[in-house]
Design a protein around this nucleic acid. Structure first.
Lengths: 338, 338
DNA sequence: CTGAAAGCGCTAACAG
DNA sequence: CTGTTAGCGCTTTCAG
């Protein structure tokens, strides 16, 4: 039961272990017949290479790190799911997919070229800036997804949140809304800013005034959307539409509306951002913006793979198109501008 | 920039690399002063051990495999999320958490003691039976979560789906329902059977007749819940309550009800299973059963950890309590039995 | 308390 | 086409 090595095979085949190594690695300079013979023996012995030994000599770990800002707080299930799915689809079983929360590290020392052939950072907040800078500095093949970086030069794949937010707010305006509120995302998240900027851009482009009391803070979770909507509903002058910075908060917001005996979209319109799996099944189905996390992850994994193979990295920022998804949570107000 | 080894440290410290190794591993038989000196040098050099080398000699990989039946189909985002969170919380950074879909393997050869110190299989269907049998046979520390096994003897941690289903159906009955339908889960999943059994158990215990046309198939996704409810709604005689075998299907089912201009729970009651994160925020908030995946994963990881440390495995089946969560999706029918 | 030497399993010159 | 030899970085006897 104890594991078989190339030496065992060598003995049985009557050759040197070097020949076995070459045969198993499909070296061209080896007799096709002996190669087959060796492979047959290896098969019959259920030989599996010792990756630690191979890693040691080849200086490759066969590890692919997928690092999230955190695994405890702020990461939504759908987000984790799409990212893992996207990356896994690409690497299959050529690499080990190692999932990590950056905030689980006390020290980054053990994150290095020896332990990881490459790193994908799924960045959700500026909190992982030190890690990204560390990774960039040790010169490990690296791809940073989701959060646009300014300082560090790396391969950076990000959704175009701002234009997505712009389009969904533009959509509200086109349906005749002029009293539009925003429930913002978590403070410090770049996406929070980008979505707010898209909101403001649309408002100013169409010359719709922004009212301070209609800007409320959230933190991307259900509860904060719920709480935020209550604040808005309690205002003397209510908005007719609310842009929630993600779908989770939109769900919480709609709950708050319902609890007051009001209805979406009849009494107040609500839009979200992300297009979660459940968003089309809510009542009403949620108008939102689709952020292609799975696609970004897939492309990120492919890029990283090619960096590793070519032993050379590119550095650039690539934006991925976000898409307005129109459903039933927005009411058309007569006298609309469109 | 090229990485520093214990030999480099040895040279600087004026000792042998053996001594460095011992110092860094906190061997007791070493002079405390030299130990400190060596550690200081190691720190200043940013030394990080080469895990491939250490693995080779120690015959440990530091890899912890978390294997799902599939990563493509059938695994819900929340499920993946809770499992990863639970396991990660336990192993922190002592191990690499390697996430895998069993159906991504062409051959299991590379899953062995050399590559993994231990395995957690999050089993969702009988399709991974061959894998589990393989793992049991190579005698690797192993824990199987979520799906109850009959043949193989391993450490098996599972939610008590049947009693959960029993309790939620009992709840329907206690609220006066006697016309109760079920939308079943994916065929071939053990959980589908267990929940069906709990349903039947409650029905027979309280002597409520089960009607064939009120048993409809689903496959655990939103769409199938939607489709299943349409079938039920089109029946000449409708049930007053529907037990959906998971929350995703309940969401789809409620959508179908709403589309018909009917309301939950006024016109028809709906309950689910799983207690997804969003279930309390649906309208109406969903009555369901909580399945403690995160807890099961956490306990599973702890067990596996101890197997690895003690170099000895236990084999038994442990059930985890599922919990009825009462919310607003069930109407009380007057003349109820309770 | 410390060092010399061996070896984990594998690949890669270098010779033939 | 094949074998000999060395060595990847680390831990562990075995001697001092």
């Amino acid at each position: 039961m104890s594991s078989v090595t190339i030496k065992d095979i060598a003995k049985l085949a009557g050759v040197s272990h070097t020949t076995v190594s070459r045969a198993l690695n499909d070296s061209p300079l080896i007799n096709p017949e002996t190669k087959e013979r060796i492979k047959a023996i290896a098969d019959s012995l259920n030989y599996a290479p010792n990756y630690s030994a191979r890693s040691l000599v080849l200086d490759r770990s066969y590890n692919f790190g997928l690092f999230f800002s955190t695994l405890h707080k702020g990461t939504s299930a759908g987000f984790l799911y799409e990212a893992i799915k996207g990356v896994n689809d690409v690497i299959k079983d050529q690499f080990n997919l190692i999932v990590r929360g950056i905030d689980d590290y006390k020290s980054f020392h053990n994150v290095n070229r020896k332990s990881f052939d490459g790193l994908i950072v799924m960045s959700q907040s500026a909190s992982d800036q030190p890690f990204i800078e560390y990774a960039a500095q040790i010169d490990i093949p690296l791809v940073v997804l989701n959060r646009p970086l300014d300082s560090v030069k790396v391969m950076n794949l990000v959704p175009d949140d701002q234009s997505g937010a712009f389009r969904v707010v533009e959509h509200l305006i086109s349906r005749g809304h002029r009293d539009i509120a925003i429930i913002e995302g978590k403070a410090g998240f770049k996406s929070t800013e980008a979505r707010r900027d898209g909101f403001r851009e649309a408002m100013s482009r169409y010359e719709v005034p922004v009212r301070d009391e209609w800007i409320v803070r959230g933190n991307y979770d259900l509860e904060s959307g719920h709480a935020g909507m209550i604040v808005l509903l309690d205002l003397p002058e209510r908005p007719t539409a609310v842009f929630c910075s993600n779908d989770d908060m939109a769900l919480g917001a709609i709950k708050a509306v319902t609890e007051r005996g009001l209805r979406v979209p009849e009494d107040i319109s609500v839009v979200g951002f992300d297009d979660h799996l459940f968003s089309s099944f809510m009542t009403p189905a949620l108008t939102t913006v689709r952020r292609p996390i799975e696609e970004i992850s897939r492309v990120g994994a492919m890029k990283l793979l090619s960096f590793i193979e070519k032993k050379q990295v590119e550095k650039s920022t690539v934006y991925f198109h976000t898409e307005l998804v129109i459903r039933d949570s927005v009411k058309t107000i007569t006298g609309g501008t469109n």
